[in-house]
Design a protein around this nucleic acid. Structure first.
Lengths: 220, 220
DNA sequence: ACCTGAACACCGTTCAAGT
DNA sequence: ACCTGAACACCGTTCAAGT
């Protein structure tokens, strides 16, 4: 013992801290790197431990469990949101906030699933939500109507992120749509053709159309 | 052997087929029952096998793997969509189609995640997609604008399903929002108050507002 | 006191042995 | 030929043994 029995390889250099010590920040950084290159499912306790050159159990000294680690990762993403300065114009305010969150999550698309599926979230998002709600108040929306408008906006943003910015270029659903018979489904075949021409980046204009509906109508 | 060494219990009655035989339909039915009561993560090969009183490997005679089983389950959900008869009015047509899909997935909410996250889908949905695209054509939308409108509609529907119809009543995100300080985040605190009064069923009216934006504007 | 290896209870699936 | 138990390669995490 001591020489190690030819461990599973990959142990390598101690990435870790500046002083060679393992701390939470180093763990989160390693986990983020893996999530960005290979997706969140690749972030296993064993894999991150290997990445840092330690045993899986050493991680539990610094994070309570895997969920806590993912939460910490989401906090870093939230901290990276380029929150715009407040605007007095409600449409500009909402456009700025929604676009900033959308941009951050389009880059770190692995973060979308734990946010919507597990209901994870960083407290850093609270100021953004508060400003969005305040902007809706300024256009005359209150109570249930304001809440409905708020939910609708975020629901669309996350729906867009899930459908468009997902690293499954050849998922079963997409293949199915592409293979749809032009005789039976002429509109689908036509849509597939236009989709292959245009790169499907419709978020900015769709967001404006959505804001048309939300802001244009006023209350009710 | 033969008496079984006190197996993990739960083997019980052979649910199975009418003639006591194991077939694909019985497997899918058992998996659906588990998914509906305990969620999709509870649908493991071992669990379904236990439910049917057989070993895990017996399932592989009838389904290729777990993904194929989930796909079969989604096919049953798609078959259950109460697709409305065609309507000449585009708004009525789109409302009917989107509402039907939304209703089916609000009941089987476990199905939403594999649809959006893994890109799974049943071919049964193709006629619905084709009719929706055709309705958009009838209001004068073509090419990229039509595709953008189509995506926007479905993205909203799935975003709504993920945010609202998820069986996490006490997710971290929801708790965080409820616990938001009224001094720092007055608009959030106000929204939480109105949300506790009204049961947050905004899909029908939000869909109409979305259709206002999509259909009202016409092309571009 | 601090850290971590062995072990446990899961998972999907391969492969070879049963009938 | 058909079916399936044992085994493999994973997973998160507990618990007790190391320093």
């Amino acid at each position: 013992m001591g020489v190690s029995v030819a461990g599973p390889a990959g142990r390598g250099r101690p990435l870790r801290n500046g002083r060679g010590l393992l701390d939470r920040q180093a763990i989160v950084a390693a986990a983020l790197a893996v999530a960005r290159t290979e997706g969140l499912p690749a972030v296993t306790m064993r894999r991150i431990a290997d990445e840092l050159g330690c045993g899986p159990m050493s991680l539990y000294r610094h994070v309570a469990d895997r969920d806590a680690l993912v939460l910490e990762m989401l906090d870093v993403v939230a901290a990276g949101i380029d929150v715009p300065p407040p605007s007095p114009d409600p449409r500009a305010e909402l456009t700025g906030l929604l676009t900033a969150v959308h941009a951050a999550l389009a880059v770190d698309h692995w973060a979308v699933l734990p946010l919507v599926a597990e209901g994870f979230a960083s407290p850093r998002i609270l100021p953004v939500l508060d400003r969005a709600l305040a902007a809706l108040t300024r256009v005359g929306l209150t109570g249930r109507a304001r809440l409905a408008a708020h939910q609708m906006l975020w629901q669309y943003v996350f729906g867009e992120l899930l459908w468009t910015h997902h690293d499954q270029p050849d998922s079963l659903g997409k293949r199915m749509v592409r293979a749809a018979s032009p005789q039976d489904f002429p509109a689908i075949a036509d849509a597939v053709r236009t989709a292959s021409v245009h790169p499907a980046e419709n978020f900015p204009e769709n967001l404006q159309r959505l804001l048309d509906g939300v802001l244009g109508g006023g209350s009710r």
